[in-house]
């Protein structure tokens, strides 16, 4: 590891905003992953369901889960963008 990389690592460790942003990203990713799993299980349920009323309910739930995931990805993207606009000073 060269000195530049080491400095960058030290900076990201000491910069409270950057640490907070990383934490947020980590947890958001965790929630999105859960939503993806949930959406997949709903799709599987829908495939094997024949009752039209239940199918209708499942479709609604899938649309909702998809909308949550989409919003989650949008927030995640925004957090990535925020990294570039963060102040570069070291905060001790």
């Amino acid at each position: 590891m060269n000195i530049q990389k080491l400095l960058e690592k030290a900076e990201s460790f000491l910069n409270a905003d950057e640490r907070k942003r990383k934490e947020k990203r980590k947890h958001l990713k965790h929630v999105i992953k859960k939503l993806k799993k949930h959406e997949k299980s709903l799709v599987n349920q829908l495939d094997s369901e024949v009752d039209p009323a239940i199918r209708d309910e499942l479709e609604k739930e899938i649309t909702l889960a998809h909308a949550h995931r989409k919003k989650g990805l949008k927030v995640l993207k925004q957090l990535k963008k925020d990294k570039k606009s963060l102040p570069q000073s070291i905060e001790i």
């Binding site: 947020k24 980590k26 947890h27 965790h30 649309t63 909308a67 949550h68 989650g72 927030v75």
Partner: peptide, 23 residues
Amino acid sequence: NVREAERSIALDKGEIDEVLQQS
């Protein structure tokens, strides 16, 4: 942190309307 993440992706009124439209 997980609770905060959940809240950040809960849908607002406009997004609820979009979901309704899609349904």
